[in-house]
């Protein structure tokens, strides 16, 4: 309701009878009016959600300028505009012009090229980083962490939270995850073109790689058959031994198994049967070898040396 409460309330009336009484009540018309309005609203059904850019206080140029400043980067304006323009938006504009009867010659470029280039750049940066901070992790798991970071879900979260969602020019609304991630990739390519690869790779580290912080990466680094994998990594002369067991032959049975090689403990794991526990122990051994145990140090973000060549 856009009108103030003071218009709905009757003026103060003080009547003197045997005792002083004060009447202050809401007008009789208020409740039926509100009911009628509510009914009309319900009959109209769900209304389309307005974009932020539909409102009167919207200055696209100012928004684009402060988008760059907010992130601490200097973008070239035309590049950024191109990065935010979707193919569907250009089609929509052309259609509008066609309807009016104007020849649709729009000199706008969409971000298809930018997003492809941007994706290549991000992927290169992420791979470089992962190889340098997890040197002993096999390449297939590096790749799965890389795919996790470059998934539409992760990229669209980043994209939304740095304010891209209001700025994208597109036909559909609310935006899909793929659109959001595509615009983020294009923005990164626009940054490469405006301020160089070094600043852009810093950008990728600060906004995309930081998504790894606090994330459990062990599910991404779980081989199908851990025992076989361990044998192929350290040699076949590994032995499994039950370290402790309790509640045998009950529903709550649990075993702890250690995997040894030449009397050295490689890893230990728990499970409800010795075979599950052995598998967990093999996984634990592998994670220890790869340096991704749960007590490992957090990923270095601020100062880290990135290897120059990627040997994938």
């Amino acid at each position: 309701m856009s009108f103030s409460m003071k218009f709905l309330v009757k003026p103060l009336v003080i009547s003197y009878g045997n005792s002083i009484t004060v009447h202050r009540q809401i007008h009789r018309w208020v409740a039926p009016t509100l009911k009628a309005l509510n009914n009309r609203k319900r009959e109209m059904g769900p209304q389309p959600i307005n974009r932020r850019s539909d409102y009167l206080e919207w200055n696209y140029k100012a928004e684009i300028y402060s988008f760059g400043k907010r992130l601490g980067e200097d973008f070239k304006e035309d590049l950024l505009r191109e990065a935010f323009t979707e193919k569907s938006f250009i089609n929509l504009e052309a259609e509008k012009l066609m309807k009016v009867g104007v020849d649709p010659q729009l000199d706008m470029k969409d971000n298809a090229n930018f997003s492809v280039e941007g994706e290549k750049f991000i992927s290169q940066c992420v791979l470089k980083y992962l190889v340098s901070v997890l040197p002993s992790l096999p390449s297939e798991h590096i790749e799965s962490i890389h795919n996790f970071l470059l998934s539409d879900e992760k990229l669209s979260t980043v994209s939304k939270n740095i304010g891209i969602d209001d700025l994208v020019l597109t036909a559909e609304y609310p935006l899909e995850q793929s659109t959001l991630s595509r615009s983020l990739k294009s923005v990164i390519h626009a940054l490469v073109l405006s301020s160089g690869e070094e600043r852009a790779s810093k950008f990728v580290t600060d906004f995309i790689i930081t998504q790894l912080c606090g994330e459990d990466i062990t599910p991404l680094c779980t081989p199908e058959n851990p025992i076989e994998k361990l044998k192929s990594t350290v040699g076949a002369n590994i032995e499994s031994r039950i370290i402790v067991e309790s509640a045998k032959n009950t529903l709550l049975a649990n075993y702890q198994v250690g995997i040894y090689q030449e009397k050295n403990l490689l890893g230990r794991g728990c499970g409800e049967s010795p075979w599950i526990a052995e598998e967990m122990a093999a996984l634990d051994a592998l994670w220890r070898l790869w340096g991704i145990t749960s007590n490992k140090k957090p990923f270095p973000i601020k100062s880290q040396k990135i290897v120059n060549s990627v040997n994938m």
Partner: peptide, 18 residues
Amino acid sequence: APLKNGIGRYICQLKRVT
């Protein structure tokens, strides 16, 4: 912190004020 703000760089969360 929203979006791990501050681990990489700090960005002011206020985007526009009318």
